[in-house]
Design a binder for these strands. Structure first.
Length: 200
DNA sequence: CATGGGATTGACT
DNA sequence: GTCAATCCCATGC
């Protein structure tokens, strides 16, 4: 992998079909204010399958999913949590990558305060946890991820992208057979349950 | 207008 | 392992 490939990794991901985008975004970074982390877990959602909010078509809720790629879809889950997605695929297609876990990179002290003092591996190990840690709320729905309040960035450092462990998506009741969950192999920062073979 | 169901988490048995 | 919290919104009458 060349330095240019690494530098543009997040930009390339935004142009890919959602399942490939979900795989490519693992290793990229998410930043909000002073807090940031490396993406270690994602899931893909597409309007062709019933687990995706966009399956029902364009509604006030799903509008954002059908916009052009590169914006955030932030929605309330279980009346409590804000979940962050990266909208991908051309305008008119409802598709997004759910950011499920981060490896904290900066602003750890602030994130720990927001989370009530968690261990580092538990700080952002879930889609609701990471938005709380980074201070991301529903008001950031539909904001750009390039030059916006939430910034999607390339992988830090000079490492190659992590090996991926692929498994079925979790926490859903429909289309559970699709292997659209991607975790950085060996990472202890991913959400439970860990996919089979994570540490192998 | 009433209802049901979550792309979750944390506390508890 | 079980379960409640909490609220928006899509659906159906």
């Amino acid at each position: 992998m060349t330095p240019a490939d690494r530098r543009d990794r997040h930009l390339r991901a935004l142009e890919l079909p959602v399942v490939e985008a979900a795989a490519a975004l693992v290793g990229c970074t998410i930043t909000h204010g002073a807090c940031s982390g490396v993406i270690v877990e994602t899931e893909a959602y597409h309007d062709s399958e019933p687990a995706c909010h966009a399956f029902v078509g364009v509604t006030p809720r799903t509008q954002t999913l059908f916009e052009a790629p590169g914006i955030a879809y932030v929605y309330r889950s279980y009346g409590i949590h804000a979940l962050l997605n990266v909208v991908v695929e051309p305008a008119g297609v409802g598709a997004a990558v759910l950011i499920r876990a981060l490896q904290p990179r900066t602003g750890e002290r602030l994130m720990a305060r927001r989370r009530g003092g968690e261990r580092l591996t538990e700080l952002c190990s879930g889609p609701g946890k990471l938005t709380q840690a980074l201070g991301i709320g529903l008001q950031l729905n539909a904001t750009p991820l390039l030059g916006g309040p939430i910034e999607l960035g390339p992988p830090p450092g000079h490492e190659d992208p992590p090996r991926l462990v692929v498994g079925p998506r979790i926490g859903i009741t429909r289309a559970t057979e699709l292997p659209w969950r991607f975790c950085a192999a060996g990472s202890r920062h991913v959400s439970r349950p860990w996919p089979h073979g994570l540490l192998a």
